[in-house]
Design a protein around this nucleic acid. Structure first.
Length: 635
DNA sequence: ATAAGGCTAA
């Protein structure tokens, strides 16, 4: 218990890193051996630029559930073998505890290995920071590697400002930050969108010769530029790299290829593939995975299969990810049969399916309404030694809700904690949406409260599902209450949320209130989008204000927001219901010119109006036109 | 022989 106190360190803003001080950089012991004798001076302005406006670190009670395994052979077995058998945080912490008590202390390398191991778990970056702090307190002499690991963790926690404060620890200890250090910082800056600071840091690295950039650093910059959505700049960097000694490697090309694919520029991505091959850089599985994923997400899976074959010809072995991409794509296209063929193929070739594989398959079955088969996959996972994860539950629960089988869905939901899994916000969102769709308003409210009681913060989706569900179950005033309390809680009120509320108001006869709210949007700095406008057009139609509705459509186009098929359908329905058949016909013609079609709802309103109007000729014209075009598109 | 870059699901 005593030791735990030493471990249970939550970072306070002022003493963020590197043993406490952040500004005592007056170390003069740096010798001329270093490329730049005073890098800290060069970096001072950047430290300020990268600093967060407010420093907040979530208090992570990682040690509160820490269970020490005692009296077993576990720790002894791990003494000589740091890297193996450490599969979870508890194991790592136990080992750490054992290590700090050893005399003499294990070398810093062993500690670094342990920290690195925790980083690779991808979940416990803050634990690494805490352990580092403890190491400093206990008096273990950390080295450059340790500090670099900590910087990386801060960056992964989106706390690049704190990462920079670790730099002070470098200077204090007489270490010189190297290319790995700066690379980690650059990654952190890009992750938080601080592109100008990243650029400045890179400039300084070059101009002041803080280190020699290598492949990893260039790769990080290219990835960073891609991730902030600046492909052009990333290409520029690639071109600069081509002219330098440090030529782009597979990673640099693949990064860019992936980014192009994600922006649907698959053709450009493929050109880049051939370009790299032409320059003698051999693509690898990752390169092909990016391209196959890019093609698949555009539903061009036949071309994806071509690339797959090309890849095989080059003797590049597909990995789990490659198989999963194909399986997932086939499932999403409703081709579970093909997906299963890929699965069989993959097992035959000795690649083990993982949870992703089975989740995709389950999703495919659910999409086809074949819930029993989905369930069989779910339980089949257990027999292969894999455990369903929270996403597996979410998929199956969603499937049951689609089948309107609320009880099965909720039983599964209740099972999650019993299996040692922790429900996350996303699964709560699934359940809430399902419950609302079932009209189970009371249960949904309960689950919403339960979620907050469990310490889960509702996210954007949660709020949208709640607001929409409450409105659609006829409790608009309550939705407004929730909306107000969200505002009071400082929730960032997104346009979508306003649109949901506006829709609720319009559909419940509170049009004037809706109009007031709509007019107030610009004061809040929100620009209505097409959905918002359409919601209001619908509101006007419901009020019988058809002239205003037509003007509204004109107005939205003037505001640079072009009406889509939904807008027109809403307007046409309104006109039909209001008996303005000639106008309805005009708008239908406009729709045809724009390549839009009447949805089934509008069409049935059209037929109703036709009957009611005792065969109005304008309506007959529309019906004929659409029947004809319907036949044409079928043939 | 301990640190830094690319690909799967939502």
């Amino acid at each position: 218990m005593m030791k735990r106190k030493a471990l249970n360190l939550c970072i306070a803003p002022g003493q963020a890193a590197a043993g406490g001080t952040t500004s005592s950089t007056t170390d003069t012991t740096l010798t001329s051996l270093a490329p730049n004798p005073k890098p800290h001076l060069a970096l001072q302005s950047l430290v300020a630029a990268a600093a967060p406006t407010t420093v907040t670190i979530n208090h992570n009670p990682i040690f509160s559930h820490m269970k020490f395994r005692t009296g077993s052979g576990f720790l002894r077995n791990n003494m000589n073998n740091t890297n193996n058998n450490i599969n979870n945080l508890d194991d790592a912490l136990s080992l750490y505890k054992q290590m700090v008590q050893m005399r003499p202390l294990p070398s810093i390398i062993r500690f670094n290995q342990l920290l690195g191991r925790i980083v690779k778990m991808k979940l416990h970056y803050f634990a690494v920071v805490s352990l580092f702090r403890d190491m400093c307190t206990v008096g273990i002499r950390v080295d450059e590697y340790t500090l670099c690991i900590v910087i990386n963790c801060y960056c992964l926690l989106n706390q690049v400002g704190l990462g920079f404060s670790v730099l002070a620890g470098f200077f204090k200890r007489g270490f010189t930050p190297d290319v790995a250090t700066f690379t980690a910082l650059l990654k952190g800056l890009f992750r938080q969108g601080k592109v100008p600071v990243a650029q400045e840091l890179f400039k300084k690295v070059i101009n002041e010769k803080l280190c020699e950039p290598n492949h990893v650093m260039w790769g990080t910059i290219i990835d960073g530029l891609c991730k902030v959505g600046n492909n052009e700049k990333a290409v520029e960097f690639l071109r600069v790299m081509e002219k330098r000694r440090c030529k782009p490697d597979v990673v640099a090309y693949s990064t860019l290829i992936d980014s192009l694919c994600k922006d649907k520029l698959v053709d450009d991505a493929i050109s880049l593939l051939y370009e790299m091959i032409g320059k003698g850089v051999a693509p690898n599985v990752v390169t092909y995975n990016c391209l196959i994923q890019g093609l698949c997400s555009l539903s061009k899976w036949k071309e994806a299969v071509k690339l797959w074959n090309q890849m095989e010809e080059c003797n590049i072995t597909p990995n789990v990810i490659t198989y999963n991409i194909l399986i997932d794509t086939f499932c999403k296209e409703g081709r579970v049969k093909e997906a299963k063929d890929v699965l069989t193929n993959m097992i035959r070739r000795g690649e083990n399916p993982n949870v992703f594989t089975y989740n995709s398959l389950m999703d495919g079955y659910c999409l086809l309404g074949r819930i029993d088969e989905a369930r069989r996959v779910f339980y089949g996972m257990l027999t292969t030694g894999l455990g369903p994860d929270v996403l597996s539950y979410s998929i199956l629960i969603n499937g049951y809700f689609r089948k309107k089988k609320m009880e099965e869905a909720m039983n599964l939901f209740r099972e999650i904690p019993l299996k040692g899994l922790t429900p996350n916000t996303s699964i709560y969102n699934t359940v809430l949406q399902g419950l609302f769709r079932m009209g189970s308003y009371v249960n949904a409210r309960e689950v919403f409260n339960e979620m907050q009681a469990a310490g889960l913060q509702p996210d954007f989706h949660t709020y949208c599902v709640m607001l929409d569900g409450i409105c659609k179950s006829g409790h608009v005033d309550e939705a407004l209450q929730l909306f107000c309390s969200m505002e009071a809680d400082g929730v960032d009120l997104h346009l979508t949320m306003y649109t949901i509320i506006l829709d609720g108001m319009c559909k419940s006869g509170r049009f004037n209130a809706a109009q007031d709210m709509f007019n107030s949007l610009s004061l809040k700095g929100l620009d209505p989008n097409c959905v918002t406008y359409t919601t209001m057009v619908n509101g006007l139609c419901l009020e019988g204000l058809l002239t205003e509705a037509k003007e509204f459509v004109k107005k939205m186009e003037e505001n640079g927001c072009s009406a889509n098929s939904v807008t027109y359908n809403v307007l046409v329905q309104g006109l039909l219901k209001g008996g303005q058949y000639d106008d309805a016909m005009l708008y239908c013609e406009e729709m045809m010119q724009r390549g839009m079609t009447l949805d089934s709802c509008t069409f049935s309103v059209l037929l109703d109006s036709f009957k009611e109007s005792e065969n109005d000729p304008s309506l007959l014209k529309i019906i004929q036109k659409y029947s004809r075009s319907g036949k044409k598109s079928k043939s």
